[in-house]
């Protein structure tokens, strides 16, 4: 098993190099390189800030030297200094926010898993039933709803009209004065809408996917064989079918990482959540290139990590891979 993990990580190394090449390319694709940009967003692109850039990228050097230096710094998470007024190290700025984003992503993924999987199973087992049809229509609707719009509607409904849920930030103003239980409740209330919305897009897709893998598995010989033993339908479905149908879903969950990260830009901005997505958005608005490149790289790295974790999870769940490595 350990050998499998190591091998899986090694296979990702060329991808990591590719990621760094593309990030490096993005900086250089701008007309005139990273400092020759005529700015729409930030008219205050001063001469002083160009000098800072020039020094940072070593633009007097040949391209491959520039890339080599960029790669070396990347390896130690040195993304340079932020262009913003505080001029802090980019990694420091990311580090204090990445946990917020990751925990919301993990919560959303858990929600997706907990809701989509039973939904998919039930739709497949009762294929063609009223439930299945309603679920199908709902999924289609879910695919088409712009989630940021849904966010607005839910904010209007629960935040403005009903006043049930807070619509901004992670904690209330009076957070510090609350007792412990109140603090937990306060945080939870702030997370309800963002987590639900982040999960929403994935719910539709994954429940659909679970449904189709279930339908696929139910047709297999070993399901007929399980039935022929006289197992009740419940046992056939949960003991025999679901276990097999879940395997591909693990991979798909891993693949949903980039979508969730992209979503966090939108929802952290809408809900004023101080996470990496909001930081990225602010960076884009103020053309804080080192920050943008830093988060872009981290985002790609997290995606890769998600894929690796999914593959490892798959290997753990599937005895065919597990025992093959052990033996």
């Amino acid at each position: 098993m350990l050998r499998y993990v190591v091998r899986r990580v090694l296979v990702s190394v060329p991808l990591l190099i590719g990621i760094s090449l593309i990030t490096f390319g993005v900086i250089n694709m701008a007309p005139g390189g990273p400092i020759g940009i005529s700015s729409d967003l930030n008219p205050k692109a001063t001469a002083e800030y160009r000098e800072r850039l020039k020094a940072y990228y070593g633009l007097d050097q040949p391209l491959y030297v520039q890339y080599g230096r960029w790669l070396g710094r990347m390896a130690v998470l040195d993304f340079g200094d932020s262009f913003s007024a505080d001029g802090r190290k980019v990694w420091d700025k990311i580090r204090e926010r990445i946990l917020v984003t990751l925990s919301i992503n993990v919560l959303s993924m858990a929600l997706i898993f907990l809701v989509a999987v039973p939904l998919g199973i039930y739709s497949a087992v009762r294929k063609g039933s009223v439930f299945d049809r309603v679920a199908t229509v709902t999924v289609f609707t879910g695919f088409a709803i712009p989630t940021f719009w849904l966010a607005l509607l839910l904010m209007i409904l629960f935040g403005v009209r009903l006043g049930w849920l807070p619509i901004s930030g992670l904690v209330s103003l009076e957070y510090d004065t609350l007792p412990l239980a109140g603090k937990i409740l306060d945080r939870a209330a702030h997370l309800v809408l963002p987590v639900f919305l982040m999960a929403f897009g994935g719910l539709a897709g994954i429940s659909r996917y679970m449904r189709s893998t279930m339908l696929e598995v139910i047709r297999q010989d070993y399901i007929a064989a399980a039935r022929s033993k006289g197992l009740p339908e419940r046992a056939v479905v949960f003991r025999h079918a679901v276990r097999n149908a879940l395997l591909p879903v693990i991979t798909i969950l891993g693949l949903s990482v980039p979508g969730l990260l992209g979503g966090s830009v939108i929802f952290e901005t809408i809900f004023a959540i101080p996470g990496m997505g909001q930081l990225f958005f602010q960076g884009v608005m103020s053309r804080d290139y080192p920050l943008i490149m830093g988060i872009l790289t981290i985002g790609a790295f997290l995606t890769l990590l998600g894929n690796i974790l999914a593959d490892v999870g798959y290997a753990l769940a599937d005895p065919r891979i597990k025992t093959e490595r052990a033996g």
């Binding site: 694709m29 980039p258 830009v265 884009v284 053309r287 943008i292 790609a300």
Partner: peptide
């Protein structure tokens, strides 16, 4: 590997 939305935003920041 790149979250598409990240990539789009990054490129917009440049061009």
């Amino acid at each position: 590997c790149f979250p598409t939305f990240f990539l789009i935003l990054a490129v917009i920041a440049f061009i």
